[in-house]
Design a protein around this nucleic acid. Structure first.
Length: 530
RNA sequence: GGGCCUGUAGCUUAGUCAGGUAGAGCGAUGGACUCUUAAUCCAUCGGUCGCGGGUUCGAACCCCGUCAGGCCCGCCA
């Protein structure tokens, strides 16, 4: 069974109404790692709906989290905002300096990073309800829970220390008040009398914080289980950092009981690594943004990456060869005839399961829920080659049509070509996919035997006298071998090695037609005389 | 120190939760198409399922141990 259906079944056993949560702190540029959080939740929600459950995905934006440090992409000026909540500080401008003007116009640090991500999510077909955590604090949604923990701080401390195995400092208190300058850092709690937490800050100032009005926040390990309560969360996927034993889910589960509700159905997922460069991280700049990715890949393929990979499996991704593999694998799956495969007699249980899982993964990859997936009948690899050879889209369509394949020139396909053109122009496009005519003699030429040298000589001769247009070029290549009563195969091999350094390649004639005749003859001659 | 994940064909992997003859893609090799769209089609080759033990009529799968790689245990999806 597909992983999302397994979870959906578990949820179905507990009731028919479900809220699935995703939560992210908008502390910097979002990247496709964050997409796994959202898409995992979205796919579960879709699986639930497919089973007739009433399921909704909510995205809880951790806008009340403080700025932890001055990240690489921020100017030193942000130093003064460390410890301040992300909803209350200005967004960075292009140089990473605080943009006070935008801030006055209502744009915050949190919304600055959130908006483009929401745009990407929308393009990917994810429907969700946004819950701004900072607003929840201000509205007093957290108040009943904050009150409970503030009344019994020792009990809460004991739960966290016992389960996580780490010792909390003696100043620890289950509420972080805002200090006189707006920071949550370095404030010592001196007392509690509902609804006020009394404090003394690092500047020596004393004050009180109203926990019913969000004048501060709960520490993460308490915040999480508390929000499960008033947001009615019944399922939440999270990264492996939270899932580890003694981690925040472990303590959250016990604290949820303390609050009087059940912890949501968990699902721990692995991280997305940037191939060869470790985990993605906004602070190190080691990222591919969702918008950037969508410039290169159609949304259904991005969905497929998550839908087709079991959550426990780490994903090694990049926008080069990994993307080629991913897109081609999607195309191959979409071309399968599942009805026919399932009708085969005597399938083992395993074969059956794998066919069904592949089918489900495709179903969950469709951008608009409920629609059926489209088969483009042409691989990314192939299209990217055509895009390099032909400058006009029309030439590509007629070329595809003349090949007699089942290709339909659909909007999907046009859209795909547009993205592929972006991709070819980007630095992500892998060198090994680039079509390039050589101007130096490649190593492989040395492997030529007498026959091949003869063919090469003949080819040069024929090309010299040919009209420089694709039909005559196209005729010259096989003739160079046929004249010697050899297989045309040899001629193609020779031509590809001399001109591109590889044994096989795309149709040569249209490419050569656009090159200078003399250059080609020179290159071939150099190969012959080497 | 505690914990999690991963290890299956040259490469990428499915299958491990519910034990029942190990599947696929890429690559390779051979062939077809009166010869090439890195195309398509057909066929072939290729696996001591990291290693050792146990449970079982039967183990890639369950249990114990072990090795290797990655990761988590302040924050991070």
């Amino acid at each position: 069974m597909h992983w999302a259906d397994v979870i959906a079944d578990k949820l179905a056993a507990n009731g028919s109404k479900h809220r699935i949560a995703a939560g992210i702190t908008p502390s910097g540029e979002f990247h496709i790692g964050h997409l796994r959080e959202i898409l995992t939740g979205d796919i579960i929600a879709r699986a639930c709906r497919a089973k007739g459950l009433d399921a909704e995905l909510v995205f809880i934006v951790d806008s009340s989290d403080p700025l932890r440090r001055v990240y690489k992409f921020l100017d030193e000026e942000y130093e003064k905002y460390i410890g301040h909540r992300l909803s209350l500080i200005p967004p960075p401008d292009q140089d990473g300096k605080p943009d006070y003007k935008a801030f006055q116009a209502g744009r915050t640090y949190a919304t600055h990073f959130l908006e483009p991500f929401l745009e990407a999510i929308n393009q990917i077909g994810v429907k969700l309800t946004i819950i701004d955590n900072f607003t929840s604090y201000k509205n007093g949604d957290f108040y009943p829970y904050a009150k409970m923990v503030c009344q019994e701080p020792e009990k809460i401390r004991d739960i966290i220390e016992t389960i996580s195995g780490r010792e909390l400092s003696k100043d620890w208190f289950p509420w972080s008040p805002v200090d006189s300058k707006g920071s949550l850092d370095g404030v010592v709690v001196t007392g509690y009398e509902d609804p006020f937490v009394f404090w003394k800050d690092s500047h020596g100032v004393e004050g009180k914080s109203d926990i019913s009005k969000g004048e501060g926040k709960l520490p993460w390990r308490i915040d999480w289980p508390a929000r499960w309560g008033f947001n009615n969360i019944s399922c939440e996927p999270f990264g492996k950092d939270h899932g580890t034993k003694g981690g925040s889910y472990s303590t959250g589960k016990v604290l949820a009981e303390f609050f009087g509700h059940e912890a949501p159905q968990p699902l721990t997922y692995e991280w997305i690594m940037l191939k060869g460069q470790g985990a993605m991280s906004s602070s190190s700049g080691n990222t591919i943004g969702p918008i950037e990715a969508l410039d290169l890949v159609p949304p259904e393929i991005l969905r497929f990456l998550i839908a087709d990979t079991k959550p426990a499996k780490a994903i090694d991704f990049n926008a080069g060869m990994e993307l080629v593999k991913l897109a081609d694998s999607y195309e191959r799956q979409a071309a399968r005839d599942f009805g026919q495969e399932l009708s085969v007699e005597g399938l083992s249980r395993r074969q059956l399961v794998s066919i069904e899982d592949a089918q489900q993964a495709l179903k969950y990859s469709v951008v608009n829920e409920g629609e059926s997936y489209q088969n483009a009948y042409v691989t990314f690899r192939h299209l990217s080659m055509l895009a390099q050879i032909k400058s006009s889209d029309e030439d590509i369509w007629s070329s595809l049509a003349s090949s007699g394949s089942k290709v339909e020139i659909s909007e999907t396909l046009k859209d795909r070509l547009r993205r592929i053109r972006n991709w070819i122009q980007s630095h992500h496009f892998p060198d090994e996919m680039r079509i390039e005519i050589l101007s130096s003699v490649p190593e492989l030429v040395k492997s030529f035997d007498e026959q091949e040298k003869q063919v090469l000589e003949n080819l040069i001769h024929l090309l010299k006298s040919a009209d420089w247009q694709k039909d005559s070029i196209n005729a010259a290549i096989p003739s160079s071998a046929k004249n010697l009563e050899l297989s045309p195969k040899i001629a193609y091999r020779v031509a590809y090695i001399c001109l591109m350094g590889v044994e096989r390649g795309p149709r040569l004639a249209p490419i050569l037609e656009q090159m200078d005749k003399e250059d080609i003859i020179t290159q071939l001659s150099n190969c012959l005389s080497s």
